[in-house]
């Protein structure tokens, strides 16, 4: 399986902050999780993958045909003047899809995140977690085959979070896409990902890659299995910077 997007020794620096060199490629059938301390460059790497900012050094290459990106920002990033439904339909609108089709897809995407009845609401009428779900629905509506998610579930309660985790896995089983998501939850990363990248700061770099070959969708009891728990421990150790157990 060829890579959808590849970064080779990519570097980015801001005033006084160095991120990279980082090498990373995402294939069409894998979910990659990125974990690391605040400020280590996780969001920056997502932006580099999406081509939203130029690299200072290194290479970025895309598959042909170029992947369709879906991006969930760390903040919900909705247009405050537009309804939830219009927000969700935006990527389709920008691509020139006709209105009937846009509306239908937007409604379906909103229902899939449990907001089927709030399509007419404006962002300021929604709670923080609902806004984040609208943002997620927007990324799903455009039938992206490469999803980049920046802490998509951080603002949600535990149960909604687990529901959406399962939905994402179900969706992933249906339509083979590639996904990269940033999270601060070790459990979530092991539950969702087929590959987990652990980053450290100064300079922002990937210090460990932990594969999780267990097949998806993962059964209900997976969260209690010894495999799961031992991987959680390995990710934890890598985050702390301890040698692998």
């Amino acid at each position: 399986m060829t890579a959808l997007v590849t970064l080779e020794r990519a570097e980015k620096s801001f005033a006084g902050v160095q991120i990279g060199p980082v090498s990373l490629s995402v294939r069409a059938n894998e979910v990659v999780a990125i974990l690391g301390p605040s400020g280590c460059g996780k969001s920056t790497i997502l932006r580099l993958l999406a081509g939203l900012m130029p690299l200072n050094a290194g290479l970025r290459s895309l598959a042909t045909p170029a992947p369709r990106f879906g991006f969930v920002f760390q903040d919900a990033t909705l247009m405050p003047w537009a309804s939830a439904e219009e927000n969700v339909a935006l990527p389709l609108r920008l691509e020139g899809a006709e209105k009937a089709m846009r509306t239908e897809r937007a409604r379906a995407a909103l229902s899939s995140v449990g907001l089927g009845d709030r399509g007419a609401a404006l962002p300021r009428e929604l709670s923080g977690g609902m806004r984040m779900r609208v943002s997620l629905a927007r990324a799903l509506s455009a039938e992206a085959n490469l999803l980049l998610l920046d802490e998509p579930f951080a603002a949600l309660d535990e149960l909604t979070r687990e529901d959406l985790n399962d939905q994402l896995l179900a969706l992933f089983a249906q339509r083979k896409f590639g996904a990269v998501f940033v999270t601060h939850s070790v459990y979530e990363s092991v539950y969702l990902a087929s590959r987990i990248l652990v980053m450290h700061a100064d300079p922002g770099r990937i210090v460990a890659t932990i594969d999780n070959p267990d097949p998806t969708p993962r059964p209900r009891g997976y969260r209690a299995s010894p495999d799961y728990l031992s991987r959680v421990e390995r990710v934890r150790a890598a985050l702390r910077g301890e040698p692998r157990p």
């Binding site: 932006r47 999406a50 081509g51 939203l52 990106f69 991006f71 920002f73 990033t77 935006l90 990527p91 920008l94 691509e95 455009a142």
Partner: peptide
């Protein structure tokens, strides 16, 4: 960035 990503 979102507008750019979707080729507006």
């Amino acid at each position: 960035e979102l507008f750019r990503l979707h080729g507006a």
